[in-house]
């Protein structure tokens, strides 16, 4: 349905996006995962026809959109990272304006406004000015505005940045419903691994302008088939012990938190004997140990040596 072919964007000496090829099939939900500065937003801007690529192509239904972006714009609903709304207008007035831009009018316009407001759960507060909404509510209207023209593909660029957990869950649930129940194709960009993991069937992982891995969640996690992550919790913080454990031979990566430690080790490595020995030496009490299933965060870590938050 939507394909990019070796999409590249160069700003002076900076290669923001480097030969990125993506594909979205009808009805699927695809994640674009990567840390800040990975080139996700630039790639989204090119796919949305808002930024001209330095090279490469974007195709919708097999047709290039570079010369005539109209075909792409008709089927795309874009939810930008910023709140692209008029703060001095109400949610209703914003949606009415954007709906009219897409040629809607009269009863059809009112019906569509009613539908998208119901979808984002703001029907009862539609008359309030957007500037009086919480960040989460503004994000929901931001999504509603992109839905006004009944797009086939929804492109979302970090739609949950800076919002409270409740609004975040509401937004994620709305996107899940759109994809699962209405068959909408979704391209979801985020640096929150758990969001992509929850929403997306397939994932592209981007770093420094390039796609460094792609596949279903299971395929990506299979990259870590020779590894496992051990999570150990202690009664209190033991900085010296944590350092010692991180330096045990075979430990590939250590993530230290206040009272816990996450170690990435080769599958089959005998860690527990050394762990309890060192804990006893430091007078520490281990309160919990378990082996975690690999996450996309672990995959990113394995591929880049950095976490998504770095």
């Amino acid at each position: 349905m939507l394909k990019t072919d070796k999409l590249t964007k160069k700003f002076k000496d900076t290669l923001a996006v480097d030969n990125v090829s993506l594909e979205l099939r009808k009805g699927e939900s695809v994640g674009l995962l990567g840390p800040n500065g990975a080139g996700k937003s630039t790639a989204i801007a090119m796919i949305s026809t808002l930024l001209k690529p330095s090279s490469g192509d974007v195709r919708i239904h097999g047709k290039s959109v570079l010369k005539d972006p109209g075909d792409m714009r008709r089927v795309l609903g874009v939810v930008p990272q910023k709140i692209a709304l008029y703060e001095e207008l109400s949610a209703y007035e914003n949606l009415k304006f954007f709906g009219r831009l897409y040629g809607l009018s009269g009863k059809k316009l009112e019906q569509r406004i009613g539908y998208v407001l119901d979808l984002v759960g703001l029907s009862d507060r539609k008359k309030e000015l957007v500037k009086h909404y919480s960040g989460g509510m503004q994000r929901r209207v931001n999504l509603a505005a992109a839905m006004m023209h009944e797009p086939e593909v929804l492109i979302m660029d970090e739609p949950t940045v800076g919002i409270d957990p409740q609004s975040r869950n509401h937004l994620l649930e709305t996107i899940r419903r759109l994809n699962h129940e209405e068959g909408m194709t979704v391209l979801y960009t985020s640096h929150y691994m758990e969001e992509v993991e929850k929403l997306c069937d397939r994932v592209y992982i981007m770093d420094r302008g390039k796609v460094i891995a792609e596949g279903t969640k299971e395929e990506l996690k299979a990259i870590l088939s020779d590894q496992e992550t051990v999570w150990i919790e202690f009664d209190q913080s033991y900085p010296e012990l944590f350092k010692k454990l991180s330096e045990i031979e075979g430990v590939q990566h250590a993530d230290v938190e206040e009272r816990s430690l996450k170690l990435m080790i080769p599958k089959g490595m005998r860690l527990l004997a050394s762990l309890f020995h060192e804990a006893e030496r430091h007078g520490a009490q281990v309160t919990n140990v378990h082996v975690q299933t690999p996450t996309l965060e672990d995959v990113f870590l394995r591929l880049t040596g950095r976490t998504l938050r770095d």
Partner: peptide
């Protein structure tokens, strides 16, 4: 700045 202009452009007007 608020990308409303981009949204307007996306409406293909």
């Amino acid at each position: 700045r608020q990308m409303v202009f981009e949204r307007i452009r996306l409406s293909n007007r």
